[in-house]
Nucleic acid binder design. Structure first.
Lengths: 111, 111
DNA sequence: CTTGACACATAGAACAGCTAGGCATATATG
DNA sequence: CATATATGCCTAGCTGTTCTATGTGTCAAG
């Protein structure tokens, strides 16, 4: 009995990554840390979710990648938003607003 | 190129169903109509999502089902919340609040 | 008499997220 | 020196949710 627990991200991961990358070029590992930190530890992005998501976003033309030296002195893959990615982020943020409004409408319904 | 569109519910369906059923005994078909109506047409619950979800919730002991006569005069399967279902609903609502707060934190981050 | 709304249902595909692994380097600790 | 921890990348395979596409049958309206 798995007793639930998982599936925390509920389809928001792509949007969150796009948003973080929109703040400035950043590498994958740092993205997950940043998401965790800003969300006050609510989101813990597993690497098995993170890297496939990054590849997905890159394949769709929303992110560009480039190997560079990280502050640690080691090579890391830095991502930045493409023009398409910026539009996609806007669309996803708008959709998220509508979604959470719709959920709120239902949860607020009494009798 | 599918150009996106689907995957509207993003893991909220179970919570929404539990909430609607919490308002009073109701049958499946009416649940989907009610969700659609209250959300101002944002959510359109497909039957291929609805019925599997109802069976899922029943199997987990969150809903009880009973065949009764609908207002249309025809037989329909009416659902009501169990005690476990009520607790589950509370837990999911709380988790949703935390999730949307965390998302808001990230989306509001500037620079 | 046939179309559309009601009401139930399943099969199969697509896809996201998870666990669990693997590889490699740098730094800190005993 | 050894080794543990943090950094940084990655994939394979499972599970679970949602979707599309069907299928059944009833009832009312035209």
């Amino acid at each position: 009995m798995p007793e639930d627990k998982s599936e925390v991200l509920k389809g928001t991961l792509d949007m969150l990554i796009l948003k973080i990358v929109a703040l400035g070029p950043i590498h994958g590992y740092a993205i997950s840390q940043r998401i965790q930190q800003i969300s006050k530890e609510f989101f813990q992005v597993q690497q098995g979710s993170l890297y496939p998501a990054l590849h997905r976003l890159e394949n769709r033309g929303w992110l560009d990648a480039e190997w560079r030296e990280a502050s640690s002195g080691r090579e890391a893959k830095f991502y930045k938003l493409t023009k398409k990615g910026r539009k996609q982020l806007e669309a996803e943020v708008l959709n998220w607003a509508r979604l959470s409004d719709a959920v709120a409408l239902i949860l607020r319904t009494a009798e």
